[in-house]
């Protein structure tokens, strides 16, 4: 019985540790409200006073962010959008280098840093796992990290790749595995304090979806040949209808990656906007009660939902990529392709 009570007490303390800073923040806002009201009435100089007051109180990220921006909407956008500054409020911030090559701005932004962090974590984890596998004989079962990763890898391999692509799925496996773990870790790191969701940026998801698009097209070309690929664009209809069918099929090629892009981007962004909005409700209403009754519990709930969504969206992105590749490569011409290969 005793450990259970200790656990419950710990859980309660954890909730308290989450809730107390937020309550203190609302207190700061409330106390700062006269100054802010004055700022609105007089000049922007007073806003600086409010800002310093907010920072002086040692507010958490949200509170400090509220100090910077004028409106909650701006703060939320500031948290979601990419920037050239990696902020570690209240400890300060790191200015990221701006690089312009040949007129193109290829600055290392916050999301680029997150991508690199994700890459570094992935490389470390999987080099460890691979090293474990090299020492593993056929009769040994994997343990710990290797076992955990194996479950995911095997899931992608069998339930995603093999189930959707069918024979010849091994070629696409490295891409699918990489994209799954990459997206998953990007999603998860967005939920870590000071982290940013790189997959909540449409540029990142667009790039990933473009990879899927190219792989899909290459798979289709390989499976059907150029003639079959072009014939597929006509939808197998009468030549008189081609003038309608070809544009439709052509647009259809691009709807899939666009759907992939927007699905992942919107899911990751929406969750963060909801969490921040829920927190800001208590700031806007300047109420402890709203914070305790609504903002904190609901944002915790959405946070947990986001954890689930992080896995779900990584899975869906991979699943749909596999499905598109499978649709592109396995068609009515597939058997002919097989016999062609056999003839070679």
């Amino acid at each position: 019985m005793k450990p259970v009570i200790v656990k419950q007490a710990q859980a309660f303390l954890k909730v308290l540790a989450l809730a107390v800073p937020l309550l203190m923040n609302t207190g700061v806002s409330v106390s700062a409200s006269p100054a802010e009201a004055g700022a609105v009435a007089h000049d922007t100089a007073a806003a600086v006073v409010a800002e310093t007051a907010g920072e002086h109180a040692g507010a958490a990220a949200e509170g400090a962010g509220a100090g910077h921006g004028d409106k909650p909407g701006d703060v939320i956008m500031h948290h979601i959008l990419d920037s050239n500054v990696f902020a570690f409020e209240p400890f300060g911030e790191v200015e990221l280098p701006r690089i312009v090559v040949g007129g193109f701005d290829i600055s290392v932004t916050k999301h680029v840093v997150m991508l690199w962090v994700v890459s570094a974590i992935l490389l470390v984890i999987f080099s460890l796992v691979a090293a474990r596998y090299k020492n593993l004989t056929n009769r040994q079962a994997p343990k710990g990290l290797a076992n955990a990763m194996e479950a995911l890898v095997d899931f992608i391999r069998l339930d995603v790749a093999k189930a959707n692509i069918g024979p010849g799925y091994e070629k696409y496996l490295p891409y699918l595995l990489t994209v799954f773990f990459f997206v998953l870790l990007c999603n998860l790191l967005g939920l870590v304090p000071y982290g940013a969701t790189a997959t909540g940026n449409i540029n990142v998801t667009l790039t990933l979806a473009t990879f899927t698009f190219f792989i899909t097209q290459v798979a289709a070309l390989k499976a059907h040949g150029i003639k079959g690929y072009l014939a597929h664009l006509t939808g197998g209809t009468h030549p008189a209808l081609w003038i309608i069918m070809i544009p439709i099929e052509f647009i259809g090629l691009f709807t899939k990656p666009v759907a992939l892009t927007i699905r992942l981007f919107a899911n990751m962004t929406a969750g963060h906007i909801v969490i921040l909005s829920l927190i800001f409700i208590s700031f806007i209403l300047k109420s402890y009660i709203v914070a305790v009754v609504m903002s904190v519990p609901f944002s915790i709930f959405i946070y947990l939902l986001e954890l689930f969504v992080a896995f779900l969206q990584a899975f869906i992105f991979t699943m749909l990529s596999a499905l598109f590749i499978g649709l592109a490569s396995a068609h009515e011409g597939h058997d002919g392709h097989d016999s062609e290969v056999a003839a070679h």
């Binding site: 990419d82 690089i99 193109f104 701005d105 290829i106 600055s107 290392v108 932004t109 999301h111 680029v112 991508l115 690199w116 890459s119 990489t178 994209v179 990459f182 790189a198 940026n201 540029n203 990142v204 667009l206 790039t207 990933l208 473009t210 990879f211």
Partner: peptide, 11 residues
Amino acid sequence: PGLIFWTAVTF
């Protein structure tokens, strides 16, 4: 474009 470039390269 910068982010697209870095995403592609990194990935």
